[in-house]
């Protein structure tokens, strides 16, 4: 009875894993397929990757995505780390409300964040462009960084900074010589996740990007909506490979930090 029950569980879990991964894997495999329309295997080619390089919109979008991603990651990681420190190491008035605000920012549907930012930018006469996209990306990343760094802080000895101070370091030295280095795995994980989110975001970006500030996901979305061609498989494959690598690194960094 028990064995049958668990065997049934494992089998259904395996099917779900298949459902979770097969579509993207198929997409990746067929990015090397030598056929423009068919989903039948016609032979191996790198043609679709070659075509990507020829497309200015993709290259420009990629460049913009990387630049925005880097900028947003730096700001969001800094602000998020400070927030995590404030929440885990300090008491201040309004702390509970502030924490709720961050969680609210995490659960708020992206579309609402997107249109409200759009409405606000327009209301104050801020012209849409790369900067508004970066601002939006920082906004949705901050909370995630704070949560990830907070997880690391929770596992850390609360007395580390005090120990440093008893050894003659003032608060400033304790922060740079002890807090930051021992938090580093969490900060790195938070930064990688922030970059991934920025690099992947379509919904919010679609509202706050102005003409001439299309990021890679926006370009890809346009391609998907216009006509389906294998170059999309190719660019998707590249995106998946890059983000998977980042996630792997983030996951490893987090796991290291847990030990």
């Amino acid at each position: 009875m028990t064995r049958r029950f668990s065997r049934w569980l494992v089998a259904s879990a395996a099917l779900v894993y298949l459902f979770l991964h097969a579509p993207v894997l198929a997409l990746m495999v067929f990015s090397f397929n030598d056929s423009k329309f068919s989903a039948s295997w016609m032979g191996f080619t790198l043609e679709w990757y070659r075509r990507l390089v020829e497309r200015d919109d993709i290259l420009l979008g990629l460049g913009r995505s990387l630049a925005i991603g880097l900028g947003a990651t730096v700001v969001a990681t800094g602000l998020g780390t400070l927030l995590a420190l404030a929440f885990h190491r300090h008491r201040f008035p309004g702390k509970r409300a502030a924490e709720s605000l961050l969680y609210l920012a995490i659960v708020t549907p992206e579309i609402i964040m997107g249109i409200s930012l759009l409405a606000a930018f327009v209301a104050v006469g801020f012209s849409l462009g790369t900067l508004t996209v970066a601002i939006a990306h920082v906004t949705f990343s901050i909370s995630f960084v704070a949560v990830v760094v907070g997880a690391r802080l929770r596992g850390m000895d609360r007395n580390l900074e005090e120990a440093a101070m008893m050894l003659g370091a003032d608060e400033w030295e304790a922060f740079w010589k002890v807090t930051v280095p021992s938090l580093m795995p969490g900060i790195v994980a938070g930064a990688l996740l922030a970059f991934t989110m920025s690099f992947d975001d379509y919904v919010i970006t679609s509202f706050v990007a102005g003409p001439g500030s299309s990021t890679l996901p926006l370009v890809v979305y346009g391609m998907v909506r216009r006509n389906i061609e294998p170059s999309i498989n190719a660019i998707s494959t590249l995106i998946v490979v890059i983000t998977s690598l980042l996630i792997y690194l983030a996951d490893r960094s987090m796991r290291r930090s847990a030990r």
Binding site: P23, V24, D200, Y202, V224, S236, I239, V240, L246, I247
Partner: peptide, 11 residues
């Protein structure tokens, strides 16, 4: 964490 857009395109 994988691009939602890519996953929709896979569908």
């Amino acid at each position: 964490w994988t691009s939602f857009l890519v996953r929709m395109f896979a569908m």
